[in-house]
């Protein structure tokens, strides 16, 4: 393939020596290192310790060993929250990223009104989680909301999408996909970083549009796809705000939107069972850690770095 040869040629001059250990690196890292030691590490370790205690925030924690973790085994609502969260991650992340990438690629091509489209598409992601926004989403997905009004035009009688236990979770996933603006912006920034010379070279070689996308655009933004994938999975596992505002903090109806962190929050602050909440947090960390590790391992086979 001529395009790949071209890419290889462009990359060829790069196999020069790299400097070995570089002490100035710690200078660049110093803000982060200070932050790690002073602000981040303490609370992380503390939460690990608390996960082995019975801690209600009002009294001193008391050591109970593995009891919190044992309790998880017979916790039905925990199982429900894990299921809800997995469904959300497995459906929400790929759908949102796929849409974000497709639109970003579409928007990256010079066209009229580009800036306008970009801004408008980002709108739903700006809204955040205020009370007004909570009511907004509930009205849209409610029995008399936008969705059902649109369905009504074509003669379908809708249901209360967020108030029916069978559809509530999927409504939140739809809402998540709707706010694809954030990964879209990151993809756009990534696409902007591809040097024009790569495209020019490909054009000289007579590559078609799909070939250009497949052999230049796609490989060059794999680091950005990878970034979005890793971070979106992490944040999807921690999804809180949307479920909280849509269900009024209950995870209802019928626990159908009981996201993991919602349950954790309810335990920690609602029931003042912070020891158990800390244990739940470390279970989550373990799960996210495994997913992230797999991601990093798999990245060797598909992520292309230009350095």
């Amino acid at each position: 393939m001529s395009v790949s040869t071209e890419l290889r040629r462009l990359r060829a001059g790069r196999a020069t020596t790299r400097p070995t250990s570089d002490r100035s690196a710690y200078g660049f890292l110093s803000p982060w290192l200070i932050g790690l030691v002073v602000i981040t590490a303490g609370p992380i370790v503390a939460s690990l310790v608390l996960s082995f205690t019975d801690y209600n925030l009002l009294q001193d924690p008391s050591w109970i060993g593995l009891d919190n973790f044992r309790r998880m085994l017979s916790d039905d609502r925990l199982r429900q929250s894990l299921w809800v969260t997995f469904v959300y991650v497995v459906l929400g992340v790929p759908l949102q990223l796929g849409l974000a990438l497709a639109i970003a690629v579409l928007l990256n091509r010079g066209m009229r009104g580009l800036a306008l489209y970009r801004s408008v598409l980002y709108l739903p992601s700006l809204l955040g989680g205020s009370v007004a926004v909570a009511i907004l989403w509930r009205q849209i997905f409610g029995t008399e909301g936008l969705i059902n009004q649109v369905l009504g035009f074509v003669g379908i009688e809708g249901i209360g999408w967020i108030s029916d236990p069978r559809t509530a979770l999927y409504s939140i996933i739809a809402l998540h996909v709707w706010t694809f603006g954030a990964p879209m912006v990151i993809f756009l920034a990534g696409l902007r970083q591809i040097p024009a010379s790569y495209y020019e070279a490909a054009v000289v070689d007579g590559a078609g549009r799909w070939q250009v996308f497949r052999h230049i655009t796609l490989p060059l933004i794999t680091p950005i796809i990878f970034f979005n994938l890793v971070l979106q999975i992490i944040s999807a596992f921690q999804a809180f705000t949307q479920a909280f505002i849509v269900s009024g903090g209950t995870g209802g109806p019928s626990d159908s939107t009981l996201f993991f962190t919602l349950y954790l929050y309810e335990k920690g602050f609602g029931e003042l069972d912070m020891g158990y909440a800390a244990a739940l947090a470390w279970l989550l960390l373990l799960i996210i850690g495994v997913f992230t590790a797999i991601n990093f391992y798999a990245a060797r086979f598909w992520v292309f770095y230009d350095d």
Partner: peptide
């Protein structure tokens, strides 16, 4: 119906 009850449950004005 139960789904309407859920929708009306949040704010007093709702």
């Amino acid at each position: 119906p139960a789904s309407l009850i859920t929708e009306q449950h949040e704010a007093l004005e709702q």
